[in-house]
Design a binder for these strands. Structure first.
Lengths: 187, 187
DNA sequence: CCGTGATTTCAGAATTTTCTGAAATCTATG
DNA sequence: CATAGATTTCAGAAAATTCTGAAATCACGG
């Protein structure tokens, strides 16, 4: 690997981080490299930059494509495929959330649903099912919330984030208004 | 492994899922088992239930403890340590969020900060730094939002979740009110 | 402070994952 | 449709991780 020091540090860190997630070191490094690169890179550029085998890069790019984390760009008069990352970081966040949900949450949800359909054969299983129901309930709330907010445009989403816990003040205000209206009606 | 079928399915699924995260199969299984168990289990109970070695269970429990995902319970007149999971699923969610942040987000944030302090040595590094700044900005927004909402009591948090994207309507309403007030003042 | 049982440690075995190089396949062009 | 360059596949090598059993340590009651 022979990269400008700043870029190298970032790439190495991402590689390590990658292995703390499900993705392996090389995949993390490829992603990081593409992320900071000012222009799309072809597979050989990556081989050169990271010092790993051509086939490893091919597999890594493949995996990143299944994650929708890299895009294929064609450079005029060059037969080779070139790759970039989506350049809007919010877009990246969305993609990441979507993919992780698909891989980590959805399968669990469907197993839970299935197990909750079964008739428990003992007290032990009855208790287990109650616990599964709790977990299922929580995950379902989280995912419907996610389905909701993921539709927001970036700007609104950013506004929401910026507001943070202050939303609860809005909520309180709303409750008060609703309370007042109810009170008046009931009077 | 010799468990009631419903429990076994859950335990096995969690084991598989575990390896999609950073934790290994056994750790996932131990967690799942404790989660559905009606009473605290000791290490030997787990060995028996999962059919893995005693030392493996010891290491697994250790790891789960560093994640704050299992609690030690003492059973009167029994020298052995017994373990459970926190029983409120919201609590579990909080713990999980906190730990993942600590392990996956914080280190990245600090690397980014460090790299952003450096003086870029070339156009390439300059561009890279700009990208890092974008990433840093996004992550920072997300974490401050998280720091904010994690302080909410469960009930408020649930209310917020239930509201989902509808919060934006509240936001719009607020904007309108503020706008009116401003308009009046300026007039 | 000894003995008993619970727990942890740790070196190496077993397993899984990652990576490579050679061969196969694909694809645009003359 | 032959060729050359680009890309992918895949079997096995290399590396990393997980798991085990034996030994060490710990901790409590007598």
């Amino acid at each position: 690997m022979n990269l400008p020091p700043l870029i190298q540090s970032f790439v190495l860190h991402f590689g390590e981080m990658g292995s703390r997630w499900g993705i392996n070191r090389t995949v993390g490094q490829i992603y990081a490299l593409l992320y900071v690169s000012p222009r799309p890179l072809c597979a050989d550029d990556i081989v050169e930059a990271l010092g790993v085998s051509r086939s490893n890069v091919s597999m890594g790019l493949r995996e990143l494509q299944t994650w929708n984390l890299v895009l294929l760009k064609h450079i005029p008069n060059d037969r080779r495929d070139h790759f970039t990352t989506p350049d809007d970081v919010w877009q990246i966040l969305r993609v990441l959330a979507e993919e992780r949900k698909k891989r980590e949450v959805d399968p669990t949800l469907s197993v839970l649903r299935e197990l909750l359909m079964q008739t428990p054969g003992s007290e032990e299983e009855k208790h287990a099912q109650a616990r599964l129901a709790e977990m299922h309930g929580l995950i379902e709330r989280l995912t419907t919330w996610y389905e909701d907010v993921k539709r927001l445009e970036t700007e609104r989403l950013a506004a929401l984030l910026a507001l943070g816990a202050k939303v609860t003040r809005l909520l309180e205000a709303k409750d008060k208004v609703v309370g007042l209206v109810r009170g008046r009606k009931e009077a």
